[in-house]
Design a binder for these strands. Structure first.
Lengths: 242, 242
DNA sequence: GAGTGGTCTAGACCACCAA
DNA sequence: TGGTGGTCTAGACCACTCC
């Protein structure tokens, strides 16, 4: 079963063995997989090597580990669909569900604009900006972590309480017209800070969208980074054929 | 510097130390970071613990390791922009650059349709489908790995050579009109097979798009999974404000 | 208290790279 | 040949869960 003289590392071989057991249905969603001790005995390998194999399955999202309990094959949960090609996808979806989005504000501060963000927002170095961090959730389940930068000149009277509801609703209420957003999307391993804000384990990959949002008149309104929790949500849009 | 009695693991503390050295510019892109041996001596920790810290920086894309050479801070490379909201983003971009896309066909076979894919394609169980794997690249740099399923009934005369150029061009040449595609996007740790096809290291996160592509008349043309290489490419689209 | 995973160690052998 | 990272070991202590 495991060839210790193979050029393929033992942990990779064991990972493949477990993978096949999961894909073949030998191990079903919700089942506990053999413990590190069992595996190390069964295959005559060290516990650390067995752990490395299972850890790899963990970050791939196939199993879930709990200290004291064991390692279980992940269930295929029904995920909530969010349209990622709309700025207000989350707000819209939550409203459709008859709920209101809960926003937790983790940071709200006025600060001098750092060089790199000045360029993006098109303002002078040293000008004041708002820096905000929010977690947006439904039923205590975090959906997105949002880090956002807006010029103070544009929103001089912004208060933390305006962030508890839709930020764009507040902006619209000031008579500003919001245009489109350039969105760059990538897969990232988040910092421990972001991971814990989204209640995720270390080294789980997540979607990141970096956005430059414009006003209809063309000036830049906001630069933001949005981290999406894939555990409970899935992200869709339509790609055009032509 | 490192508190061995802290509830924060030593490897996480060391990772943060190195992270700050990189973010502060103390370690610049291209610089070699201290070796595992140096770090284990300096902080009186074991080499395995130092390795764990550096491995974490590796999957975050901050450093690159080479056996025999050392670990180096990643440079900020200029990436090629690909529009992810168009089915033919890659082909279009390559043409704009005055090149033709190079496609490598890794698999091309006729097979009975598995249950889950039957549902998606809207065909009967046991009907024949084409299963294809391609890597699409520019200058030997893989951009995307594509796994695709199409009913044989729709394309009875498909040949492997039709996959060397644009697949959609071939389909159009048959008089079929391609519509839009439902695209679900996620961040994933790829299998070792996909990672090596894209010339990536183990456990690096990548973007995955799962697509259901329709013909204009409404029937399903294709189910595909596209894995995007973020090392050299970045993926953009416009999100609508309203 | 028994079993689980989380961390850490000190040492080993290997493959790879550069000088 | 010496230094690097890649793998693996056998053992240790801990925190957690469940009974």
């Amino acid at each position: 079963m495991i060839d210790k003289n193979s050029h393929i590392p033992i942990y990779a071989q064991l990972e493949n063995i477990l993978l096949e057991m999961i894909e073949s249905g030998d191990l079903k969603p919700g089942d506990m997989i053999p413990s590190e001790n069992e595996l190390s005995k069964k295959y005559s390998i060290s516990r650390m090597t067995a752990k490395k194999a299972i850890d790899s399955l963990t970050i791939k999202g196939l199993v879930e580990r709990t200290q004291g309990k064991g390692t279980y094959v992940c269930s295929i949960e029904k995920k909530i669909e969010l349209p990622i090609n709309r700025l207000r996808g989350f707000t819209q979806k939550v409203c459709e569900m008859g709920l209101t989005p809960e926003n937790k504000v983790l940071a709200f501060e006025k600060m001098p604009c750092p060089k790199n963000i000045c360029k993006i927002l098109g303002i002078k170095e040293g000008e004041s900006i708002w820096r905000m961090e929010r977690v947006r959730q439904i039923d205590e389940v975090p959906a997105v972590f949002e880090e956002s930068y807006i010029s103070v000149k544009l929103l001089p009277n912004l208060k933390e309480k305006n962030l508890l509801k839709s930020k764009f609703d507040y902006i619209k209420s000031l008579g500003l017209e919001i245009g489109n957003s350039e969105r760059e999307i990538s897969a990232e391993i988040p910092s421990d800070y972001v991971a814990s804000a989204l209640k995720l384990k270390r080294n789980e990959p997540i979607l990141l969208a970096e956005n430059i949002t414009y006003l209809k008149k063309g000036t830049v309104l906001e630069y933001s980074k949005i981290y999406y929790n894939q555990k409970k949500y899935k992200f869709k849009f339509i790609a055009e054929g032509n």
